[in-house]
């Protein structure tokens, strides 16, 4: 598959803190890739490296085949970047703001006025063309910044927490806007620490924690792995290892694990938990399988779980 963004062992160190640890990432063309991770995971760090604002300590990143270290200008011409926190110039009108950035990207003077109008229309700020930037609301500034990222018609949009600070309605609008941009052929990378927010808009998701990319893939696959509709907790009076083996082999069961430390022998009692994907309509099939394998099941209860729980569980489980 043709990847627009590729990274290889991308690493960023700050003194003795590893902010980004050998990240290998690949973002397909015309996809919407969501970075999810808790605060301090390294989302902004990787995004800033991709946007050539930060030099990696080691490793490489390529955008459209161009190296961020060797050809930063080519990379910059292909990327529209919206930071997590950004300011706007005071004393500037909306159209002047757009015009300024169009000039920075060497957009020819004849194209600039039409382009400005078109993009402001796209983000629904057409009426604010002659307003001062500082008079815009937070959400409008966010949309203006998004319009700004598009002035040079980049192949890739990199948006760091585009939904932060937006009210629910504006979030929905932002999501619709991103989908529209995708139909226009853009590839989008965005970050968030709210998985549910990404699941709706993204085609691909990468989970990052403490600088490491824990998992990444198509949203459906990830939902299969992550977005478990049900979680089940169970206790066995013995044969925990057998139970674990049965669960792990059962199609549709994910993340079977012991609660607490894993038992050493097959004779001990133990508590287990596992997730069920859509594939399994009725968890009684799992129970039947367990019982027929001779596992003495003492308790078997469904636990309500949502995306967030699973996300937390996965990230917790794999970080040492």
């Amino acid at each position: 598959m043709d990847a627009l963004v590729q990274t290889q062992a991308l690493t960023k160190r700050y003194d003795n803190l590893v902010a980004l640890d050998s990240m290998n990432l690949s973002v397909e063309r015309n996809s919407i890739f969501g970075f999810v991770g808790p605060n301090g995971a390294g989302k902004t760090t990787s995004i800033r490296i991709i946007c050539t604002l930060l030099q990696p300590s080691s490793g490489e990143a390529w955008i459209d085949g161009h190296s961020v270290r060797d050809e930063p200008d080519r990379v910059r011409n292909r990327i529209g970047y919206m930071p997590d926190f950004f300011g706007v110039y005071e004393d500037m009108k909306v159209w002047e703001y757009m015009d300024f950035f169009a000039r920075c990207y060497d957009v020819p003077a004849s194209k600039r006025p039409g382009l400005t109008d078109e993009l402001l229309e796209l983000v629904d700020l057409g009426e604010k063309k002659n307003a001062y930037v500082e008079s815009l609301s937070r959400g409008m500034k966010q949309r203006l910044c998004l319009a700004r990222t598009l002035v040079h018609d980049p192949a890739l949009l990199v948006l760091d927490e585009p939904a932060s600070g937006l009210d629910p309605r504006a979030r929905v609008e932002m999501r619709e806007l991103l989908k529209e941009l995708r139909t226009m052929g853009k590839t989008i990378i965005l970050s968030s620490h709210i998985l549910a927010e990404l699941a709706d808009v993204c085609t691909h998701i990468g989970i990052i924690e403490r600088g490491r990319l824990l998992a990444s893939g198509r949203v459906e696959e990830m939902i299969g792995r992550l977005s478990v509709r049900k979680r089940v907790r169970m206790r066995v009076s013995s044969k925990p290892l057998t139970a674990h083996r049965v669960l792990s082999g059962f199609p549709g069961v994910v993340d079977a694990s012991f609660e607490g430390s894993a038992p050493e022998t097959d004779e001990q009692p133990a508590a287990l938990a596992f997730g069920l994907t859509e594939e399994v309509q009725d968890e009684s099939a799992v129970l039947t399988q367990l019982v027929s394998s001779g596992v003495p099941v003492r308790a078997f209860a469904e636990e309500s779980g949502d995306l967030e729980d699973v996300f937390l569980q996965i990230t917790k489980g794999q970080v040492q």
């Binding site: 043709d2 490489e60 085949g65 190296s67 060797d70």
Partner: peptide
């Protein structure tokens, strides 16, 4: 501060290089 490291001989992503797709620039 960040200047291009080696603009005349830029590094290429491994997939593009090994499979020769798309054609080398």
């Amino acid at each position: 501060p960040t200047t291009a490291r080696n603009p005349n001989n830029p590094s290429r992503p491994p997939v593009l290089r090994e499979e020769g797709l798309p054609p080398p620039p």
